[in-house]
């Protein structure tokens, strides 16, 4: 928890700036939108976090979001499948993509960066070819299954804010991953593998299996995210749906305290990190800044956050050393 304090501070600062200078920030509608987007992005960021714990990286998240998201309406509308068949098929397919990455990385010892970079190109290409690059959508149908992402729960006493249903999968997944990491043998072993893979192997930790499972979980969560995104927005273009989402996911994980060296993670931090990025995006619009500046602002804030975090860490290390001496 202590290491999430930094990102919590940044989050609050961005929120305060946005609410003071942007008039519409604290409206129910905007906050509802923010909650929805945060939930969806946090889900894929948790997956990125699991891979980053192992010291790896997954650049294919955006393309998996696209492939899973595009396939869902494609199977439902173009091929007339039942939602009961589509959801399991898309999720199993996403997990198999992760298994493919994991096997290449642990068995063939290929570098995660390369494997998932190829994945980034591969899955988007497949999605565009499969759909002949045509926009895919639900055409006003399937409101039942889309309500997984669209349902809102009214909150007594609040008129304009309703809680989006997507916070339910986010909360369930966050709690499950937090318990997994800190309370189960596998989670402890995953963290140990990230800290020192070789020492973990000498200690009898099944490192190859754990790393593979981290990639499976990451792609599976990207698949879940892709489905929720498409349920939310209704239709999307295979050529741009999910573009750069891997970078939002990785940025959220890093802001949330994951070290790219591996072995460090905080589920709470990742969720707050994802929220911070979404507040930033909204704030840019609300403050009347050019939307073309979006990436520049996110990049600058990320850099400031990471630098501050590193400086604070060094300062506290020095202080604790002085205390011992």
């Amino acid at each position: 928890m202590k290491k999430s304090l930094g990102i919590l501070g940044i989050f609050l600062a961005v929120c305060i700036v946005a609410s003071v200078f942007g008039q519409n920030f604290l409206t129910g509608y905007n906050l509802m939108n923010l909650t929805q987007r945060t939930s969806l992005f946090a889900i894929i960021s948790l997956g990125a976090g699991l891979v980053i714990i192992t010291g790896g990286i997954d650049l294919s998240i955006g393309s998996v979001v696209c492939l899973a998201g595009i396939t869902t309406p494609w199977l439902l509308v173009e091929h007339g499948w039942s939602p009961w068949a589509v959801i399991p098929v898309v999720l199993v397919g996403s997990a198999l993509i992760g298994l493919f990455h994991g096997v290449l990385i642990t068995r063939l010892r290929l570098q995660p960066f390369l494997v998932t970079l190829c994945g980034l190109l591969l899955y988007r290409g497949v999605a565009r070819w499969m759909t002949s690059d045509q926009s895919q959508g639900f055409q006003g149908e399937f409101s039942g299954v889309r309500s997984i992402a669209l349902a809102k729960f009214p909150i007594p006493g609040l008129d304009t804010y309703q809680l989006p249903a997507t916070v339910i999968p986010l909360i369930v997944l966050s709690v499950a991953i937090a318990v997994f990491l800190h309370r189960t043998v596998w989670g402890r072993w995953l963290l140990a593998t990230g800290r020192n893979e070789s020492a973990a192997r000498y200690s009898g930790v099944p490192t190859a299996w754990l790393i593979t499972m981290a990639y499976v979980a990451c792609s599976l969560l990207a698949g879940v995210g892709g489905m929720l995104f498409i349920f939310d927005i209704g239709s999307a273009q295979p050529s741009d749906f999910g573009n750069f989402y891997e970078l939002y996911a990785i940025a959220a994980a890093v802001l949330g305290g994951c070290s790219l060296r591996g072995g460090e993670a905080s589920v709470f931090g990742i969720v707050v990190g994802a929220a911070t990025l979404q507040v930033l995006r909204t704030a840019i619009i609300l403050l009347g800044l050019s939307s073309q500046l979006e990436f520049a602002v996110i990049g600058a804030v990320l850099l400031i956050g990471v630098t501050t975090d590193e400086l604070i860490r060094r300062y506290s290390v020095r202080r604790s050393e002085r205390k011992i001496a």
Partner: peptide, 21 residues
């Protein structure tokens, strides 16, 4: 240093790693 310890982890984590299994 390379294959034995988890240098940036607690003593406790280092010592319980096999036991927890």
């Amino acid at each position: 240093a390379r294959n034995g310890i988890f240098a940036s982890s607690h003593v406790s984590m280092n010592m319980s790693l096999a036991w927890i299994d």
